[in-house]
Amino acid sequence: MSAFGVTRATLLKDLRMEWRSKDAINSMLFFSLLVVVIFSFAFNPTAEESRQIAGGLIWVSFLFAAVVALNQTWARELRNQVLDAYRVSPAPPNALFLAKALGNFLFVMILEALMAPLFVVFYQLRSVGPVWQLVVVALLGTWALVVNGTFFAAMSIRTRSREIMLPLILFPISIPALLAMVDSTTGILTGEFSPDFWIKMLLVYDVVFTSVCLLLFESVLNAE
């Protein structure tokens, strides 16, 4: 089976499992809904204020919600020693990694598409800048979170307290990506400054960390 075949088969398997159980999507949705409601109580913003803080709210809630899905990425492969079977098979490790990362990317993008209207309603958001730029930021930003998140989930699954470990190692590394997402979103929503630098920054972050992940995933998969 070619690398592409492995990626496709794993991705389709994960999507089918998610379609049948809807575990990740449901828990992410409910989780970010909770964050939205709690934030709105905590800050109680007016329409003008919410435009200023929405970038932060949106991305922090997606980041927290994504961790929920990321933690489940590899857990199901541990049951029945699927991961060990994968290790002894000749299939390229990066094909598996890409499939998992793409799967998570799809889940989080679906979450964002479903949650975006809620943010608009609850925080009375109206974008001053062009909305298509928000889509670009969402695509690049989500990949930035998910590619490292999938990688670190594979690492944290091998530690003693799995679920706690992931955010502890993911958040510090993700700080520049989060900064870029939040600031570009604020820039687009308020129209006060151009998000161009931040979008380029996200692009650089994506390219750099996708390469590092692909370079090192084999060592993590085979760590003994």
Binding site: N148, M155, I173, M201, V204, F209, L216, S219, A223
Partner: peptide, 17 residues
């Protein structure tokens, strides 16, 4: 292995930060 991998991520991250 895990620590070495994370160290590389951290080091790559610093200039971006």
């Amino acid at each position: 292995t895990l620590a070495a991998v994370l160290a590389i991520f951290g080091f790559v991250d610093v200039p971006i930060v």
